[in-house]
Design a protein around this nucleic acid. Structure first.
Lengths: 236, 236
DNA sequence: ATATGATATATGTGATCTCATAAATCATAA
DNA sequence: TTATGATTTATGAGATCACATATATCATAT
């Protein structure tokens, strides 16, 4: 075949770009994960492998393995011998997760505040916080949730531990659907995030001044206050 | 069928006992998990689904899902498009895990020390610690590892958070093969655990006196000192 | 009217087969 | 001698089929 004599390394305008080589399973996993964080599932909602496969336009096989991974993260649980559901809300269990999150996210915030000064980080955090405020003004609750998540993960990423980010994001997978379900109460949701914006401001100041204790305290306050609001919502 | 007229609720000597209803997948998962904690795999060792299936006497299917769960826990990773291996040792990554463990296990120890006095717990902890010493005397390193694990998890269980136990045990899944691999150096291993026994003693005293700070400190010291020893071993 | 059994349906689990391809080996040509 | 292409082998990924059984519905008998 004579085509092989073409020199692909010659300096020509090549527009070829790497193709997506991720497996279907991986994309299914990310898709369900995102759906959980966005609150597209209710806590306790039943799901089926075949059902998810149909919605996602694939077969059962990749969904099975993606679900196995989500079960390992306790985002999905087996409520019976042949039934799967999104992790439901249980007050005491949720409170335990909140305490664990305070330990880990508080530590990550502390480390982020200990890192060398990083004006770009401060700018990014302010921008995410402004995004939340803007989203609330136009009642775009999806965007508010996304902005809140972006703020927190931007901060934790600055701690410089990819490993702690993984664990935290797996914890958010469990509390995410619960926070997101609070969207049903507009007033509560707005109040919740208004408070959050204020506390985020304190966290940003703490990081800007490299005040570790204040950063940890602000993040812990943020987690605790949103937990208390949600608890009141979920228990009535 | 006339048998159905027998009254099974009558007070007779029934010896029937519930049968094992767990799935093969679950047993495969537990089996691999235990193997990792026992150090039956080396860090970075390649594994195959078919290979594991054969060793475990089952087909590929249950192994695939069990492996998917272990991948979600970062105990096994995909090093290439079609290759699986036990998570390898990387110094900085491992150090990050150590720091995370200090946060979580320190917190769990603190909570255990805050709980009401529990003489049975103290006894159990002392017993586990004695088991380690005894195992070292007869150079039974498997038993020493098991005793160490039993000690830590007995303590953390007393914190009263099933959720934190899950996360910690998933972290041990990653550091476990590394600690276990230190068995190859008898002298190091013995020294490592001799030190551990002493520090465990401090931890037990702290819990007995309900001294939260001391309990956290002892556990953190235990984690850090074993980390430092392992690091010296792994890096030469 | 209630409880028990039969039936139908849905669903996770497991086994098996196929396929694309990564890795290794070997052959060939410049 | 070296580099390139062909060949073989192993392996994860995906599809499909079969199966046991949980759940719900309905029928029947007491």
């Amino acid at each position: 075949m004579h085509l092989k004599t073409i020199d692909m390394t010659a300096p020509r305008a090549r527009t070829l770009v790497p193709v997506d080589v991720t497996t279907i399973q991986e994309r299914v996993y990310q898709s369900i994960r995102l759906g959980l964080l966005r609150g597209e599932f209710l806590p306790g909602e039943q799901v089926t492998i075949r059902g998810l496969a149909e919605v996602l336009g694939t077969s059962a096989m990749p969904v099975r393995e993606a679900v196995a991974r989500l079960i390992a993260e306790h985002a999905i649980e087996q409520s019976g011998p042949r039934t799967l559901r999104v992790a439901p809300y249980h007050a005491t269990e949720h409170q335990n997760y909140i305490r664990i999150r305070m330990q880990l996210e508080g530590y990550a915030a502390e480390r982020a505040a200990s890192a060398p000064k990083n004006p770009a980080l401060i700018d990014a955090l302010r921008r995410h916080n402004d995004d939340i405020a803007e989203a609330l003004n136009v009642k775009d609750f999806d965007a508010a949730l996304a902005g809140n998540q972006a703020f927190h993960f931007e901060l934790y990423r600055a701690a410089g531990y990819p490993q702690i980010l993984d664990i935290i994001s797996s914890l958010w997978l469990r509390t995410g659907p619960i926070v997101a379900s609070a969207r049903r109460d507009e007033a509560l949701f707005t109040r919740l995030f208004k408070t959050g914006i204020r506390i985020h401001g304190n966290a940003i100041d703490a990081v800007a001044q490299r005040d570790r204790a204040a950063a940890r305290h602000a993040i812990n306050l943020d987690i605790r206050s949103s937990h208390l609001a949600i608890r009141r919502f979920s228990q009535r």
